[in-house]
Design a protein around this nucleic acid. Structure first.
Length: 494
RNA sequence: GGCCCGUUGGUGAAGCGGUAAACACACCAGCCUUUCACGCUGGCAUGCAGGGGUUCGAAUCCCCUACGGGUCACCA
C-alpha cells in the first residue's frame, strides 16, 4: 500500500467539537499506525460563516489533545496551500476543464426560480431535485441572461442512469443511483467552490488515501464519486464513522444545551487531554481486549477501522468523568496541583503569585483530594474547609457535637493544642492519644467530634493530615470558638 | 416523502453460525478505613426491537414490519 495519508478538514466556523475531535483522532491514528501523514486542511469556502481565529483555536485544541499534524497551514507541506480560499486558481482550473469537456455548465437560475421549482415538485409529491433546465443553453440564451445581469454558477452535469457504488471501510458496500441526484453547484458565481467539489480536488491533489469523516457525509459521497471520475482522479478509501448521540439518543446539535460538546469547555472544567483522547477513541471504536485505558501512543498501535462500529455512539458523560478521574489519580501531584491553582485562585481561595511556601502548602491540600477528583474544578468545593473563614456546621456535624462526651474531648484537645506550635501528622496522632488517655474516649467517640469541630462536616480526608495542614492557629481558633458558642450552636439539638 | 444507515441489560459496549451472551460505567452488598473517598471482592440486571425464513444449529445470513437516525443547499 502506498503511504497512508489522512486528513481532517474542519471549517473555521466554531469551536472544536467532540465529533470533530474524534474524526481528527481517528484520522490521525490511522495515519500514524501505518507510518503515514496526517494533514489538517481548513475548509473556509463558506466565507459568510467563517469566524475570525476559529481555525487557529481549533488547531490549538487539537494540539492540546496531542494530535499533531505533518502538513497544514502553519507548518506548510508539499501539497499546499492548506487553506481552501488560497486555492482558488486550482479549483478554477479544474472547473474550466469540466466546462470544456461538457461535464459541467453555467447555470443561470435564480434562487426564486429554484424555490418555485422545488415547491412545484413537492406539490407533485416528487423528491426535490434540480431539473437541469439550463443545461444546454445556446450562446444567445446565455447572452440574454448575462444581459439581465445574472451571474452564473457552475453546475455539474450528473449523468443519467448511473449506479454509484463504493466500499466503505466501515459500512461495507453502499449503493446510490445517479438519478436521485440533481445537477449540483460546484462553483458559486463569485468563483468560490462548493464543498463537494473542493473536497475532491483537494483530497486528490493532496494524495489523501483514506477519507475519514462523519456519517452525515455518506450521502455526499456519490456526488464526489462523480467528480473523481469526471476529473480522472483516483478514488480514495472512504470510512464513514457513526454519529455521536447525546444521552437522549439524538444527534448532538451545536445548540444542544444538555451536553457539553466542545473540547475547550472540557479543558476549562479541568479535563486532562489524555482522558479526552482515550474517551473519544472509544466513541464508535472498540479495542480487542478488555482493557480500555490507552494512551495516544498505544492507540496508534491498536487502532483499526475494522473495529469501528456502524451503530451510532452515545456520549456517556458519566463514563468520561470516571475516565478523567482515572487519569487524575495517575498523574503526578505537581501536575494536578498546577491544574488546580487557577480554580482556587478564581474562587478567591488563593492569591495570585503564590509564595513558594504557600504553593507547597496548597499542593499538600490538593494531594488530599487527588484520588477523588473527577474534574479538577471540583477541588474548590472539596477543599473549601481549608479556605473558609467562618465555620459552618452541617446538621450531621451538629449531631455529632451534641454527644455527651464532646465538651470533655474538645477541652482536652484544646489543651493539647496549646502546647504545640508546629504541627505535623505524627504529632497530631500523639495528641489524639493523649486526649484519649485523658477522656477515655476512643474511636468514633474521639475522632468524629474533633473532625466536626475542626472541619464543620463529618466526612473528609485523613484527619491528622487535615489538622496538620490547617495549622495549630486555625485549629485552635476553631475549637475555641466552638467551645465559646457551644450552647448557642447546639440549642436546638439538645 | 425518496435515498442511505442503524436497533445487544439502567447506560456505554464486545460478539462476524455452535459462548453459561464479554467487559466497562452506574447501582447494591461485603472488606479496607476513626469518616468520606480510593481500592479490592461479590452481586445485579434476566438484554440480542418484532415477525417470518435459510440452517442440524442464528444476536450473528436473507426478507418484511416497527422504531431511531442521516441526507436530499450557491453549509461543511
Amino acid at each position: 500500500m502506498a503511504t497512508v495519508r489522512t486528513r481532517y478538514a474542519p471549517s473555521p466556523t466554531g469551536h472544536l467539537h467532540i465529533g470533530g475531535a474524534r474524526t481528527a483522532l481517528f484520522s490521525y491514528l490511522l495515519a500514524k499506525k501505518h507510518g503515514g501523514q496526517f494533514i489538517v486542511r481548513i475548509e473556509d469556502t463558506d466565507t459568510e460563516r467563517n469566524i475570525e481565529g476559529a481555525a487557529d483555536k481549533q488547531m490549538a485544541m487539537l494540539k492540546w489533545l496531542g494530535i499533531e499534524w505533518d502538513e497544514s497551514v502553519d507548518v506548510g507541506g508539499p501539497y499546499g496551500p492548506y487553506r481552501c480560499m488560497e486555492r482558488m486558481d486550482i479549483y478554477k482550473k479544474y472547473v474550466d476543464q469540466l466546462l470544456a469537456e461538457g461535464k459541467a455548465y453555467y447555470s443561470y437560475s435564480t434562487p426564486e426560480e429554484r424555490e418555485k421549482e422545488r415547491q412545484e415538485q413537492l406539490a407533485r409529491g416528487e423528491t426535490p431535485k434540480y431539473s437541469g433546465w439550463d443545461r444546454d443553453l445556446t450562446p444567445e440564451q446565455r447572452a440574454k441572461f448575462e444581459a439581465e445581469g445574472r451571474v452564473p454558477s457552475v453546475r455539474f452535469k450528473v449523468p443519467e442512469g448511473k449506479t454509484l457504488v463504493f466500499d466503505d471501510a466501515i459500512r461495507g458496500r453502499v449503493v446510490f443511483e445517479s438519478d436521485d441526484i440533481g445537477d449540483f453547484v460546484i462553483m458559486r458565481p463569485d468563483g468560490r467552490p462548493t464543498y463537494n467539489f473542493a473536497v475532491v480536488v483537494d483530497d486528490a491533489l493532496m494524495k489523501i488515501t483514506h477519507v475519514i469523516r462523519g456519517e452525515e457525509h455518506l450521502s455526499n459521497t456519490p456526488k464526489q464519486l462523480l467528480i473523481y471520475e469526471a476529473l480522472g482522479f483516483e478514488v480514495p478509501e472512504f470510512a464513514h464513522v457513526p454519529l455521536i448521540l447525546n444521552a437522549e439518543g439524538k444527534k448532538m446539535s451545536k445548540r444542544d444545551e444538555t451536553i457539553i460538546q466542545f473540547i475547550d469547555q472540557y479543558k476549562e472544567l479541568g479535563y486532562l487531554p489524555e482522558a479526552i483522547v482515550n474517551f473519544i477513541a472509544l466513541l464508535g471504536w472498540a479495542p480487542e481486549g478488555e482493557e480500555e485505558i490507552f494512551s495516544l501512543q498505544e492507540l496508534t498501535q491498536i487502532f483499526s477501522l475494522e473495529r469501528v462500529s456502524k451503530a451510532p455512539a452515545v456520549f456517556d458523560t458519566g463514563k468520561l468523568k470516571w475516565m478523567n478521574g482515572q487519569y487524575i489519580k495517575k498523574a503526578p501531584l505537581e501536575r494536578v496541583a498546577a491544574l488546580a491553582f487557577p480554580y482556587l485562585e478564581k474562587a478567591g481561595c488563593i492569591e495570585s503569585p503564590l509564595s513558594p511556601e504557600r504553593k507547597e502548602w496548597v499542593t499538600r491540600v490538593v494531594s488530599l483530594y487527588q484520588e477523588q477528583l473527577e474534574e479538577i474544578s471540583q477541588i474548590v468545593e472539596l477543599s473549601d474547609l481549608f479556605f473558609q473563614e467562618e465555620m459552618i456546621y452541617s446538621d450531621e456535624a451538629k449531631e455529632v457535637l451534641a454527644g455527651e462526651q464532646v465538651p470533655g474531648v474538645l477541652q482536652a484537645f484544646l489543651k493539647q493544642l496549646k502546647e504545640v506550635r508546629e504541627l505535623d501528622a505524627d504529632q497530631v496522632k500523639a495528641m489524639f492519644k493523649q486526649v484519649q488517655k485523658e477522656t477515655g474516649c476512643k474511636g468514633k467517640q474521639l475522632f468524629m467530634p474533633i473532625r466536626a469541630a475542626v472541619t464543620g462536616v463529618v466526612h473528609g480526608p485523613d484527619l491528622r493530615e487535615t489538622i496538620a495542614l490547617l495549622g495549630a492557629e486555625t485549629v485552635t481558633a476553631r475549637v475555641q470558638s466552638l467551645i465559646d458558642n457551644y450552647e448557642v450552636l447546639l440549642e436546638n439539638k439538645r
